[in-house]
């Protein structure tokens, strides 16, 4: 088991900054998710921990030992790749056994270890098959078993579910969650899918353009986003954000009038989540014509346009109205989030 410390690590390619000043301590047995859009530096960070990329600056410590100059094989990490990265010429059994074989582990215990790992990911019936004869989900389970078999100190998972279809993604996600609980190994998981982050993580790190935006538990990040970027990245649908003016504790924008807020006067961005809003008969803070309505099954998503932004709220599943009809939306004041319009930083609620 291992505690990982990333001390102001950075990665540069010439003048391009891939990761900037990443500073974080990852507790032993913690499940940390690096979340962000493509190119935000999350995979680069993971690759630096794995030893596949050299850090341009800073220190990487695993259990207090600086590993910057160590070869990947000496860092005692196991990695699961998005593309599975299986050995196509070997069958499932040999794929899982490979780390034991190349590391010179006593051959007498190979079989026991391989079978235990394959049982954990329910692959016992496929051990003789080649990767080409497996489905995407089965291949990813082989990759998981290969990571498990060696009982490493750290698991690194680079978007392991991205190549799977939606249904398989849900079941494999559950399997990873269960494995993480069972094995209790420090895990760093990279994804751009905020649902994976929310469901799997003990803590989430949200990154943008190489810079950490917020570190916190899924609940903290969901309930108190540090800036407008985090607010818009987490949640499905994303948080509604509207630009407007704050004056004397009242936020005003086209079709919007929200009194009773505590923030300094000036240009601000107001945010709230779709599920925190209610459609009311009359007297809501937002009164705008309906832009579109979508039936979700358990609710009806009603959307209006405020300035250039699309604002969506969840109404009762029986709610019906015509497009263009004025809808009144009410949000409890404690559910509003205020961000500085220029910097995007959180300034209150």
């Amino acid at each position: 088991m291992a505690e990982i410390q990333l001390r102001n690590i950075g990665k540069r390619w010439g003048s391009f900054i891939g990761v900037d000043n990443f500073d974080l301590k990852i507790a032993d047995k913690e499940f940390l998710v690096l979340l962000g859009p493509s190119g935000c530096g999350k995979t680069t960070t993971m690759r630096m921990i794995a030893g596949l990329e050299d850090a341009s600056e800073g220190d990487i410590l695993i259990d207090g030992l600086r590993v910057n100059e160590m070869e990947p094989k000496d860092r005692d990490v196991a990695m699961v790749f998005q593309s599975y990265a299986l050995y196509p010429n070997m069958n499932v059994y040999e794929n899982i056994r490979f780390p034991l074989k190349v590391r010179g582990v006593d051959p007498n215990i190979h079989d026991e270890k391989v079978r235990r790992a394959s049982a954990m990911v329910e692959l016992d019936d496929f051990l003789h098959r080649k990767p080409a004869e497996l489905s995407g989900g089965q291949r990813q389970r082989v990759a998981l078993a290969r990571a498990i078999v060696r009982e490493p100190n750290v698991f690194l998972m680079d978007e392991p579910l991205s190549n799977l279809d939606a249904k398989l993604r849900v079941s494999t996600r559950a399997q990873i969650k269960n494995l993480s609980h069972e094995l209790a190994v420090t895990t760093i998981y990279v994804t751009h899918d905020q649902i994976e982050a929310m469901t799997l993580a003990d803590r989430v790190v949200i990154m943008k353009q190489g810079v950490v935006q917020q570190v916190g538990s899924p609940v903290e990040i969901y309930d108190s986003p540090a800036n407008a970027f985090v607010a818009s990245f987490i949640g499905n649908p994303a948080m509604n954000l509207m630009d407007g003016d704050m004056s004397g504790g009242t936020f005003r924008a086209q079709h919007v009038d929200v009194p009773g807020l505590s923030a300094p006067d000036g240009k601000v961005t107001l945010g709230f989540r779709a599920e925190d809003a209610n459609v009311v008969e009359i007297g809501g803070q937002i009164n705008a014509p309906i832009y579109t309505m979508e039936l979700l099954g358990d609710a009806t998503m009603v959307s209006v346009r405020i300035g250039g932004a699309l604002v969506s709220v969840k109404a009762d599943k029986s709610y019906r109205a015509e497009i263009g009809e004025i809808v009144s939306i009410n949000v409890a004041p404690e559910h509003f989030h205020l961000f500085d319009q220029k910097s995007g930083a959180r300034i209150g609620n």
């Binding site: 990947p72 990695m79 790749f81």
Partner: peptide, 21 residues
């Protein structure tokens, strides 16, 4: 495939083993 080579590297394969396997 770069991923497979990196996977072998992390799995603990030496340069020679990566070449062979």
């Amino acid at each position: 495939p770069a991923d497979t080579m990196e996977a072998a590297q992390i799995d603990g394969a030496s340069k020679w083993q990566r070449l062979v396997y």
